Simulated assay, not measured.
Amino acid sequence: MPRAPAAGVEWGGAVDELTARAALTRVLEPGEEHGGRWLRRFGAEELVRLLRDPDAAGGALTGVGPDRLAGYRRRAAAAEPGRDLAAVAAVGGRFVTPGGPEWPSQLDDLGDARPVGLWLRGPHDLRTWALRSVALVGARACTPYGAHMATTLAAGLAERGWVVVSGAAYGIDAAVHRGVLAAEGATAAVLACGVDTSYPRGHDGLLRRIATQGLVVGELPPGSHPTPSRFVLRNRVIAALTRGTVVVEAAYRSGSLVTARAAQRLGRHTMGVPGPATSGLSAGVHELIRGGAVLVTDAAEVAEQVGAMGELAPGRRGPVVARDLLHPAAARVLEALPAGRPAGVRELALGAGTSTDEVIGRLYELHSLGFVERQGDDWRLTTPADDAAGQSAGPRRGGP
C-alpha cells in the first residue's frame, strides 16, 4: 500500500501521483465534482501543475468562476503535502489513492464525486475489510431504546464476521462503535475531519481505541476540522464503502437519512430499525421504510440483506488469494488456529506472538477471504464442507 514519504519530501518541483493527490486534499473540498472532472481529464500531477502555474492553465480549468479558481490557486500554493504525509505517518497512518492496492473499488461508484484519496489510521487493510462491511448510523440525540438497538445490532454483526462502519458522532454512532469493540469485532469510523483530530473531543479515547483495533478514515488532510457541509458529504463515503446502510433512529432532517439516500442512489441495501410510532426520532426511519427501505430488527435480518449482495464481493466465495499470498501477520494468525476446534482471541495472540488487537483485525481479514469464521466469542478454520469454493482458490491449512 502507498506509504507516506519521509518528512523531508520536497514540494515545488515534479511530484508523483500520491503526493499530488495529497496536495489536492488541501485544495478541493470533499465531493466537488468539477474537481473530479479535472482529475479525470488531466490526472493529479498535471492538475497540480495547472493550479500552481497560472500561465500554464489558460482556459483549461473550466466549470468554476474566476474568484473560486483564484481560491484554488491560493490553496495549491500554500499546500505542503510532504508535511501532511509526515504528520499522518507520525500517528501511524497513511494516505491511499484510487487504483492502489488498499483502495476499495466500490468508492469508484461515486463517479466524479469520488474522494481524491483517503487518509487512514489503523493497522488493517481497508479494501479487504470493506468486502464484508455494513454501515450503522443514526441520531446524535438518541433515546435509550436507540442506543440499545445500535449496540445490539453492532455486536451481533461483529459476531457474524461483519465489519461495522459508522461516523464516530455522539449518540447512535458511538453506541455502534462501542458495541463492536465490546464484542472484539472490527469497526471503521469515517470522519468529517483529519484522522489525527478527535471530533467530538469527548470521543478522543474512543477514536484512539478504534485506531488501534479498527480503522479511522477521512478525506481531509491532518489537522482539518469539520464543518456542517463536510459532515453531509462524509456520508456519501460511508454509503459507498459498505454493502448496505442501516438507520437506527433519525428525525425527518437527520443527516443519517442523507447516508441512507446516498446508499439507495448507489444501489446498496437500505434498512431501517422501527421505533415507537409517536417518537419524533423514529419519524425519519419510518418515512425511509415507507419509501422502500427494508425493516430490520436484529443482526440476523441485516446479515440476510447484505449477505445476498454480490456487486461488491468477489465473484466466487471463499479465499480471494492463495494462502501463501497472505500478509505475514495474517498467515501467523491462521497458523495459530488449531484444526478441529475453535479458539479464542487471547489463545491466538499467544500462539501468533502478537497483540489481541492485531489478532482481531487479522481474523476479520481472514474471514473476508474465507479462511475462518466466528463462532460465538471464538474463531475456527473454515472447513472444506463449509467452503467448497475455497478448495480451488488456494492452499488450505495442512495442504501442500
Score class of each variant (00 low, 15 high):
Leu366Trp: 04
Glu184Ser: 09
Ser198Phe: 15
Leu220Ile: 05
Pro342Ile: 14
Gly244Lys: 03
Trp38Tyr: 12
Gly179Glu: 06
Ala79Ile: 02
Val15Ala: 15
Leu181Pro: 02
Tyr199Pro: 05
Leu69Ser: 08
Gly194Thr: 11
Gly100Met: 10
Ala389Gly: 15
Leu350Lys: 14
Thr270Ile: 08
Asp298Gly: 08
Glu311Pro: 04
Ala251Glu: 08
Asp109Gln: 12
Glu287Lys: 15
Gly223His: 12
His148Gly: 00
Val176Glu: 01
His269Val: 14
His269Ala: 15
Arg236Phe: 10
Thr25Arg: 06
Tyr170Leu: 06
Pro66Asp: 07
Gly185Cys: 12
Gly344Thr: 05
Glu102Val: 01
Val165Ile: 14
Ala308Tyr: 05
Thr62Arg: 10
Trp103Ser: 00
Tyr199Val: 01
Arg316Thr: 15
Arg396Gly: 11
Ala331Ile: 13
Gly218His: 04
Ala20Gln: 03
Thr354Glu: 10
Glu365Arg: 01
Ala90Lys: 14
Ala6Met: 01
Arg83Pro: 01
Gly267Cys: 03
Arg75Leu: 12
Ala189Arg: 05
Asp324His: 14
Val116Tyr: 04
Ser224Trp: 09
Val320Pro: 00
Ala183Pro: 06
Arg261His: 14
Gly122Phe: 04
Arg140Phe: 04
Val302Glu: 02
Asp112Pro: 07
Ala22Tyr: 12
Gly93Gln: 03
Arg121Val: 08
Leu18Lys: 11
Gly138Pro: 07
Gly63Gln: 04
Glu45Asn: 06
Pro81Gln: 10
Ala6Asp: 13
Val306Asp: 04
Thr356Trp: 01
Ser254Thr: 08
Cys193Asn: 10
Pro200Met: 01
Arg317Asn: 12
Leu153Trp: 06
Pro144Gly: 05
Ala211Pro: 12
Tyr145Thr: 07
Ala14Leu: 13
Glu80Leu: 12
Ser224Asp: 09
Arg261Ile: 01
Asp324Lys: 13
Ser282Phe: 02
Thr19Glu: 15
Val88Thr: 07
Gly340Asp: 06
His148Asn: 00
Trp119Tyr: 14
Asp108Cys: 09
Val247Thr: 09
Ser355Glu: 11
Ala343Asp: 09
Leu110Thr: 02
Leu191Met: 11
His148Tyr: 11
Leu136Asn: 09
Arg261Lys: 11
Arg37Phe: 10
Thr25Trp: 09
Pro314Gln: 07
Ala155Gln: 10
Val64Gly: 05
Ala188Leu: 11
Ala343Pro: 10
Trp129Asp: 06
Ser279Ile: 13
Gly370Ile: 08
Arg75Glu: 10
Thr242Gly: 03
Gly280Asn: 00
Val64Tyr: 08
Val91Ala: 08
Gly275Val: 13
Ala322Trp: 00
Glu10Gln: 04
Val216Phe: 09
Val9Tyr: 03
Ala70Thr: 13
Gly205Asn: 06
Gly399Met: 00
Arg41Glu: 15
Leu181His: 07
Thr383Gly: 10
Arg261Asp: 01
Val345Gly: 01
Gly63Leu: 06
Val164Trp: 01
Arg346Ser: 14
Asp204His: 15
Leu241Ser: 05
Ala352Arg: 11
Val163Leu: 00
Pro98Ile: 13
